[in-house]
Amino acid sequence: MELARILEHCRDGDELAWEMLVRRYQSRVYAIARTYVRDPDEARDLAQDVFLRLYRNLDGCREAERFLPWLIRIARNAAVDHLRRRKARPPARDLPAEEAWDLAHPGPSPEDHSEEASRRRLVAAGLRRLSDINREIIMLKDMQGLPLEEIADLLDLPLGTVKSRSSRARVELAQAVRELMTPPGEEATA
């Protein structure tokens, strides 16, 4: 079903349309939440909060073409609010990135041994080494595919700054991944 029709049905209070919308976008919202918080359970709560906000503001987006940027904006705002609240009341224990990843993906499976799974693991750990703003730009640009103009608007930064930061952040991430790939004791950087 087309997104425009799903949204229309959702606004009319159709529970089945809402379920379809949730199922269609939940993995994307959860992935966004995971870039902001390390703990999988916390990310799950954050993703749920995003959908509650979305449900309360379904009238806020009338154009289906604008839905994804709008959803990402809601997710980002929810994440920022969540991090502010958490700053005021920190969790009992903060997980290192690698540990958090292990919690989210417990036990080795055949897939874990594939090269792609290994690279995903490295990139997830590399992302944790970036500054908050660089990680956000990577998430918005390279993961979610938002145009630079949209990112500049969302982050309230000049377009030129976002452009330069975007390429720099990518190289920083590649550098971090290289360092993680290098066995301990060997130097990866020049």
Binding site: E15, W18, E19, Q26, S27, Q48, F51, Y55, V123
Partner: peptide, 25 residues
């Protein structure tokens, strides 16, 4: 890197997630 990052745009939550969202809404 671009291929892996694009692949990381989505990550499936656990099976009960949809049910919990629907219950909340």
């Amino acid at each position: 890197l671009p291929v892996i990052l694009a692949d990381m745009a989505e990550e499936e939550p656990d099976a009960a997630f949809t049910f919990d969202v629907l219950r909340g809404t």
